[in-house]
Amino acid sequence: MKVFTAIFAFVVVFQTSMYTAKKTNTEKRTITVLVTNVSSDKGTVSYALYDKENFMKVPVQAKSSSPKGKKSTVVFTDIESGNYAIICFHDENNNDKIDFQPNGMPLEDYGVSNNPMSFGPPNFDEAQFEVSDKNVTLEIKF
């Protein structure tokens, strides 16, 4: 009888730990993004969170924040596990778009998650990060 009770207790504990692990992996997370080198406190900093399938097309979420002390922070909430990338820019003139020179170079500061040093448009593979079992905090530099 003692052996049966011990086995039963072990099975209950094991199943409970499996349920807890499964539940943890399906919980939604937050992504906190901080830009520390905004050129001024004018305008807004606009952020777009993308998955690979919709990169630079339709964001999973979009947020904006008014810079204070040349810093800007946003929090993306209810994020499912997966790989994501963030693109942000300083919309200093509040026209809701990034402005470009005639040759295609941006006139307004922008940044990408992981801060890759590349010329040309952002690349998902360089910018991607994983959201899994805990909340994510990122710092992006313009």
Rank of each mutant, 00 (worst) to 15 (best):
A9N: 15
L49H: 03
T16N: 03
M1D: 04
K23E: 07
D41H: 03
T44W: 13
E92C: 00
D51L: 13
F142D: 15
P102C: 05
N95G: 10
S118H: 04
Y110A: 01
F76H: 01
F142M: 15
L34Q: 12
F100K: 00
P116G: 14
T44S: 10
C88V: 02
K134Y: 11
E130F: 15
Y50L: 01
Q101C: 14
F76R: 02
V75A: 10
D125F: 05
Q128G: 14
M1S: 10
D91T: 05
V38F: 10
K23F: 03
V11N: 10
N54E: 03
T77K: 08
F55P: 07
D109E: 04
S113E: 11
T30W: 08
I98T: 11
M1P: 09
V11D: 11
P122D: 00
V136Q: 01
V38A: 02
V3Y: 07
M105V: 12
P67G: 01
S64W: 10
F76A: 01
S65G: 08
C88N: 12
D41A: 05
A48D: 02
K97F: 07
V45K: 05
P102E: 13
A85G: 13
K71E: 04
K141T: 14
A48Q: 02
D51I: 05
E80N: 00
T36P: 04
V74P: 02
M56Q: 11
T137Y: 12
T32P: 06
N83C: 14
I31W: 00
L49A: 08
Y84S: 00
Q128T: 08
S40D: 10
T30D: 06
F124A: 07
I86M: 06
L138A: 05
S72Y: 09
G104C: 08
N95Y: 06
A6F: 10
N94T: 09
N103W: 15
S39G: 09
P106N: 11
T77E: 15
P59L: 04
V11H: 07
K63C: 11
V136F: 07
T77N: 15
